[in-house]
Design a binder for these strands. Structure first.
Lengths: 288, 288
DNA sequence: CTGTTAGCGCCTTCAC
DNA sequence: GTGAAGGCGCTAACAG
């Protein structure tokens, strides 16, 4: 049986190049100290011949930095979070960081559990993308000396930085836009409760639309739920003519439901959504 | 200024419990050797009080296994791959593995680059989800002693295991289904070229539909492209009545286009798609 | 400019 | 049953 070939180490390269491990390290990392051109060449040659690949684990143990960032997501299968994840990963890649990804599945327990595992893995930082609720896990991370950022939503008493949309401004803009198209009453479709950013959007709609607000609608955050709600409203002839949805998934479901029931869009229904999923603006015109 | 608190180590726990580091290790890992119940209690208590978290990096260096698996994706922003990623991650989580995720963005170069970085990070295994083409990166991984699996697609001369759909069977089933609904001619919408699984689906359609095949349509793998194509076909009164699409994204685009132009679904258009994205089957009926 | 050496935190043989 | 010690591969002090 063929023996498993041990991975080539810095020591192997040093021996082959007739130099010390320290020098090899300096060459590989371009520092922190200069190396004579001749030596450098020998080292590079030896490394290439042996097909040397630095062991990031050993480096991490020594330098106390892994070059890995943890990304905890609510659910990568939701296109909104999926797109977000892709962009976060790309941004980290550009900074030469690796991304450790975990799905919390909208569960605060699982979220905390993930953060715990990521901390054990010695991540250099944490990006937390959750939908709502949950404990201030960023604070726990900071306690362990690991910087953390929230994206999309920050739990209530939370000090960590937040990267998110300006919900108030977005809602105001959406309502204003529909008004310039002649709609006096603007309805709002949101989720089952008012946790997280969606709750802020709801409040903003209430404040903006004021007395002229259309009905407040609620359904789960899925295309299927919004689809069913829409069919029902159309059947009962209760579909509002102008609607702002709290999420893209719901907007797509509304459009599908309108389409299936033959309710003309944008003829008798104008919809604006607030998330900004890449695919969202394109196919069926969300507004005009 | 507050001093950065050094992380608590196994040595700290040992000192606090009045035991040796070896014993603490045995307790934490439930082995490989037994520990007296009393000692075990003391160790556990000390660990809890100090909030000890084993350093996975040090463990990895010593045990030569990181507990991390690399997942290279074509594009997490595509809902099909996003859902796939979520399930892979969950399966790994159940096996107590962490998931390192990277997006190759449909580029063979970036894919290889990612694999390289993952190998340097000493991943225990690799899951490769690519759309088409590319080199046999799994083979490179195996060379480094890291097992690898392909999902969705395996490049041409590739020996690594593949987890994928039975394209032939799926296409045959789709065509048969439409035929039982009275459609003699079944059209097929695929991508710009025939690389990857989509090419196999195309071939299977050709073989199954045979002489009675409807027209072959092509457009990019996006909702927007399929939307535009559909509008165009409807406008020219050239929309086929029965259609199989190679991907879900395209199916959604077709439905959107049909909806926008008032082309009745399922009245004058029956569509079946082949991917199986979670959201796909629900909102507009893809077939009936 | 280069080499030697002492650990990073953990696991695991050896001795007791 | 427990303890002491070496080393995984690498980096950063310290010499020279």
């Amino acid at each position: 049986m063929k023996r498993t070939t041990r991975a080539v180490t810095l020591t192997d390269v040093a021996r082959r190049a007739g130099a010390s491990t320290a020098v090899v390290s300096y060459v590989i990392n371009n520092g922190p100290r200069p190396v004579a051109a001749a030596t450098r060449e020998r080292v590079l040659a030896a490394a290439a011949e042996l097909n040397y690949r630095p062991n990031r684990v050993a480096r991490a143990l020594r330098s106390r930095t892994t070059g890995v960032v943890g990304l905890v997501l609510a659910d990568a299968a939701n296109p909104y979070f999926g797109a977000l994840a892709r962009h976060v990963e790309q941004a980290l890649e550009e900074r030469d960081k690796l991304t450790l990804t975990g799905n919390a599945g909208y569960s605060a327990d699982r979220q905390r559990h993930l953060v715990e595992r990521f901390l054990a893995a010695q991540v250099d930082g944490l990006v937390i993308v959750s939908a709502d609720g949950g404990a201030d896990v960023a604070a726990e991370a900071e306690t362990a000396g690991v910087p953390a950022v929230y994206v999309h939503h920050r739990p209530e008493p939370g000090r960590a930085p937040l990267v998110g949309a300006d919900d108030d401004a977005a809602v105001r803009a959406a309502v204003a836009h529909l008004r310039t198209h002649g709609h006096r009453h603007v309805a709002f479709l949101t989720g089952p409760d008012d946790a997280g950013p969606v709750g802020r959007r709801h409040a903003a709609w209430q404040a903006t639309a004021g007395a002229a607000a259309g009905p407040l609608l609620r359904c789960a955050y899925s295309q299927a739920a919004a689809d069913e709600l829409t069919r029902d409203l159309v059947a009962r002839d209760a579909m509002p003519p102008a609607l702002v949805t709290a999420t893209d998934e719901q907007a797509v479901g509304v459009l599908a439901g309108a389409c299936a029931t033959g309710h003309p869009v944008p003829g008798r229904l104008a919809v604006i959504s607030l998330d900004g999923t890449p695919t969202a603006p394109t196919p069926p015109p969300l507004s005009r």
